[in-house]
Amino acid sequence: MRAIALVKKVPDTGIPLKVLPDGSDIDRSSLQYVMSPYDEYALEAALRLKDAGKLTELIALTVGDEGSEDVLRTALAKGADRAVRIQVENPDALDGLRTAERIAAWLKDQDVQVVFAGKEAVDDAAAQVHFYLAEFLGWPAVSYAVDCELDGDTLHLERETDRGEETVALPLPAIVAFDRARFEPRLPSLRGIMQAKRKPIDRVEPQGETRGAVVRVKVALPPAREAGTVTTSEFPQNVEELIAFLKEKKLI
């Protein structure tokens, strides 16, 4: 059984963002990049199935420029067998639909049974690619998975949603998108890192229809929050002050 893990290179969200003076984009000069965290969970889920002997081959795939091969190397170092980069010059200009089109165009000729993805990439948080892909391929897709198990031709997923926990079964081929999982993504070992050098990365030309893309018009930081009001009085006077304050603001 062959699986694909979709991985995307995104800015490390731990680093404070700056916006370019003309508002066209964030300032990317001082950013550091990482694999999108939900992709890491999805990759880990796939690696676990591979460790358990349930996958014969795991391929990491990204749609991006040369610089985005970093995340493919990371996936290879962690244990993916090979990697594919669908070459695009300016991946940031692609919206979810166009990204999914390109993946679908490549994937339809491949003998692949499962696609692992993150529930969203943490840069644009669009959460679209896996569902568009499901549409193009005609495969079932489920998101917010936190664990999975492969049993013959069925993928069993544990999901966590606002309504509670759920166990679902999907017939293969299928697409699964991961939330923060019940397990931690592994670190690559030194051996893995050294071996990753010798594993192939295929670079393929983008195929597929090109529909009109969503264009980013302007970016801005959220307005700074005003300082709050602090009461230093004792109970129960502080409660009274709070009630008076809320009434004054017509909030209660």
Partner: peptide, 17 residues
Amino acid sequence: NEEQRMIRDMVRQFVDR
């Protein structure tokens, strides 16, 4: 180089976690 950066990141994450 790329591999040295990966080694750095791996050990750094190990230390952080």
